[in-house]
């Protein structure tokens, strides 16, 4: 057996042991819980449609994060960029448009622009203001969340009474059309697939990807070759923020059809876990995003079936990433120099 196979085996074992221990601690029968997760995610066409609906923002966010990780930036502000994308889309949809498709396209574009702008702001704070991107991004996340609440309870409040249920829903002609077999918008899935393909092409086959890697690996050497680290960082942030903004805009136009306080559902943060688990490479991203989406959707019915909290999905997702980091680090430490 190869070293890598042993590593994956150990990781899986650690993960299952940990999750089972947590389930036993909570007094839930582990086998029933695993079965319930699987059935909850793939038990019917409707469920599968919901999994795909969650897959879209996770994939978009993780793709966007590859640009920033490539250049060595920790874009923790991705969560706020999703939120700003949703705000942009809502703002655009509140304005009259010549036709419904134009309105929706405009909403998605507005989401991309606002998400990119929010990321650009964090990038400027980093390159011009010397503010670490983690804290800049984190701060901007909370500002964006406060902004959403203010909009929902202030200028965009539902006629009559403002509430946590969000703004008034848009008329159905402004909703992204859903598939005949389940509540998933094919346009959203197609956009996520396009984003994966475009990211693959951009990172592997264009000068942009090359420059991002060069600056990420050695900013000083890159600068000697005439590459501006600051400009490339801002580009990476804007690209990542744009995809996160698109994810947020799709949550408004294709899922909730209005702005709600929890519009991002934590998908930005979860996208960070997806990118980390993928080893900051693109190829595994779609599969891992599908796995994470299945866990999220599969856990929704847990409170009803087993009377346990739905946060089990988050426990498993975090435990996978942690197990990979620990086993990977442990194995790298034991490996003699030079072996992968």
């Amino acid at each position: 057996m190869t070293r890598a196979a042993v590593r994956y085996g150990v990781t899986a074992l650690v993960l299952v042991a940990f999750t089972t221990a947590v389930l036993l601690l909570a007094g839930a029968p582990p086998w029933d819980a695993y079965r319930s997760l699987a059935v909850g995610a793939f038990g019917s066409w409707g469920r599968l449609a919901r999994v795909l609906t969650v897959w879209v923002p996770l994939t978009l966010c993780a793709c966007g994060l590859l640009y920033t990780f490539r250049i060595g930036l920790w874009n923790i502000g991705v969560e706020g960029q999703v939120v700003m994308g949703a705000i942009g889309a809502t703002w655009a949809l509140r304005h009259p448009a010549p036709s419904a498709p134009v309105a929706v396209a405009g909403a998605l574009a507005a989401g991309v622009v606002l998400g990119a702008a929010w990321a650009y702001a964090a990038g400027l704070l980093k390159t011009r203001g010397g503010v670490n991107e983690i804290f800049a991004g984190l701060g901007l996340n909370f500002v964006a969340q406060g902004f959403v609440l203010w909009l929902i309870f202030g200028p965009w409040k539902r006629p009559g009474v403002a509430s946590m249920s969000g703004t008034a829903p848009f008329p159905p002609e402004l909703w992204l059309p859903t598939a005949s077999w389940g509540r998933v918008a094919p346009v959203a899935v197609a956009l996520a697939v396009v984003a994966v393909a475009a990211t693959a092409a951009l990172l592997a086959r264009t000068r942009v990807g090359l420059h991002l890697s060069a600056v990420g690996r050695n900013p000083r050497a890159a600068a000697l070759f005439g590459l501006s680290p600051a400009r490339n960082m801002l580009l990476a942030m804007a690209l990542g923020g744009g995809l996160a903004g698109l994810a947020g805009a799709l949550q408004v136009a294709g899922v909730y059809h209005r702005l709600i306080p929890a519009i991002s559902s934590g998908y930005g943060y979860l996208g960070l876990l997806v990118a980390m688990l993928a080893g900051y490479r693109l190829a595994p991203v779609p599969v891992i995003a599908l796995f994470f989406a299945a866990l999220n959707v599969g856990s929704i019915q847990l409170p009803l079936v087993l009377e346990v909290d739905s946060s089990l999905s988050g426990v498993i997702q975090g435990a996978v990433v942690l197990a990979v980091l620990v086993v990977h680090g442990w194995s790298a430490r034991r490996a003699p120099e030079g072996t992968p």
Binding site: V22, L25, A26, W74, I76, I134, G266, Y269, L270, L272, L273, M276, V308, D309, S311, L312, S313, G314, V315, Q317, G318, A319, V321, L322, L325, V326, H328, G329, W330, A332, R333
Partner: peptide
Amino acid sequence: YLGQSQVAVGFVLTLTCRDLAYFL
């Protein structure tokens, strides 16, 4: 000791501990 990114591990634990707290 294992040479992993402190930020990465800390961030994962932020989310995991929160969900573990809600679950248990």
